[in-house]
Design a protein around this nucleic acid. Structure first.
Lengths: 93, 93
DNA sequence: TTTATATTTAGATTATCATCGAAATATCTA
DNA sequence: TAGATATTTCGATGATAATCTAAATATAAA
């Protein structure tokens, strides 16, 4: 993975709200409004965070009527875990 | 682990120079000057990054004459790996 | 004890980032 | 088509953060 993408990924998970969004999405795909119910930030701020997570390819979106449904992208999460192991030399076992 | 410490950890690894420092230390303990030889930043900036890594408890220091020798703190790296796995929902195997 | 070496601290600058309210866009429904 | 709902975009603001040079501190050597 290119260093730029790596940086985008590590940066994306550096924010506590974005990590919360990822954990919320772990429980299943959800609309923006549903995610927003579980956080204490404005819609504009949530939208901003979702943009960053999208850029990092950590989440995917699809439309459903007026709603937009966000899901986790597990393959990138796997890559992230591998990069972390490489970073630290931890085998994880 | 407290959310504050978690944030400190994720923040610490969000910077590319600090990740480089961790990778440099993977090859073994080193003095500040030795680390600096492998990076293209000023001594002051390196010192700043080392402070942040120390606060996150990702590295440890000991003195040896005028030098200060930095080492990785593997136990915190293990904890961080666990947090990564939790975040990503990946078993890692 | 003066000088050299190693590293940190101080202070300043510039850039990035999280956040908000308001406005814009897009879709659906009546 | 008009109004309601869902989400994003705009523009601004305050807070952090990365970086540098210069000065300070600490240790070692001459």
């Amino acid at each position: 993975m290119k260093e730029d993408n790596k940086q985008t990924l590590f940066q994306a998970i550096a924010d506590v709200q974005r990590r919360r969004i990822l954990e919320i999405l772990k429980t299943g795909e959800q609309s923006v409004a549903e995610i927003n119910d579980k956080l204490d930030i404005s819609g504009a701020t949530l939208s901003h965070h979702l943009t960053i997570l999208k850029q990092a390819d950590l989440v995917r979106v699809r439309r459903a009527g007026q709603k937009r449904i966000y899901t986790l992208n597990t393959s990138v999460l796997e890559q992230l875990l591998i990069m972390f192991k490489n970073l630290t030399g931890q085998s994880g076992e």
